[in-house]
């Protein structure tokens, strides 16, 4: 081998990686929790503070958990998609109001519509930490056994919903 070709070889490899790197998003973080049982929570409900919603009640069905907040811009972007999904009735959506003011959250839902079966209140953000949330909105797909099967970081788009989430939900529902 010609040792003078070595620098060129290394360079070609580096450029190849940089080219692949251009297509990646360094800020998107895959969750290590996918495939693991969803962390338990037991939290007050937004619409009825006296009542508690706990993750154990949701076992036995496939459901979505959507972390949102009234202060979050991305949530407004994805909201129509969620409302539409809720209307179709394909899968129940549970909301997690993340680090929010109760009044503002209620106003927000009145204004933009409420796609959620129940909204839990995570005032301290502690449940968010258990779920590895690092920016709202984030959406989780849970199977019947309460295992996280998919995590969507950032606003839910219609193409992701139709292409990934709904096929997965149907598959899980048939299990």
């Amino acid at each position: 081998m010609n040792r003078f070709l070595l620098p060129l070889g290394i360079f070609v490899v580096v450029v190849g990686f940089l080219a692949v790197g251009l297509t990646l998003n360094p800020r998107e973080l895959p969750s290590p929790l996918v495939g693991k049982p969803a962390p338990d929570f037991s939290l007050p409900q937004l619409h009825d503070q006296g009542k508690v919603i706990s993750s154990n009640e949701l076992k036995g069905k496939v459901w979505l958990l959507n972390f949102w907040a009234s202060w979050c811009d991305g949530c407004k972007v994805e909201h129509p998609v969620l409302v539409h999904l809720a209307q179709s009735g394909e899968v129940p959506i549970y909301g997690m109001d993340y680090k929010d003011q109760r009044n503002e959250a209620l106003t927000w839902l009145r204004e933009w519509g409420n796609p959620y079966q129940v909204v839990a209140v995570d005032e301290s953000g502690r449940v968010g930490i258990n779920y590895g949330v690092y920016g709202v909105p984030e959406t989780y797909v849970m199977d019947k056994a309460g295992v996280i099967r998919y995590k969507q970081i950032g606003p839910l788009r219609d193409d992701i919903l139709q292409g990934k989430i709904l096929p997965l939900v149907r598959e899980l529902q048939n299990q």
Partner: peptide, 10 residues
Amino acid sequence: VIGGSLVLYA
């Protein structure tokens, strides 16, 4: 630029 120079170099 770099690839060209390294070819020239080799």
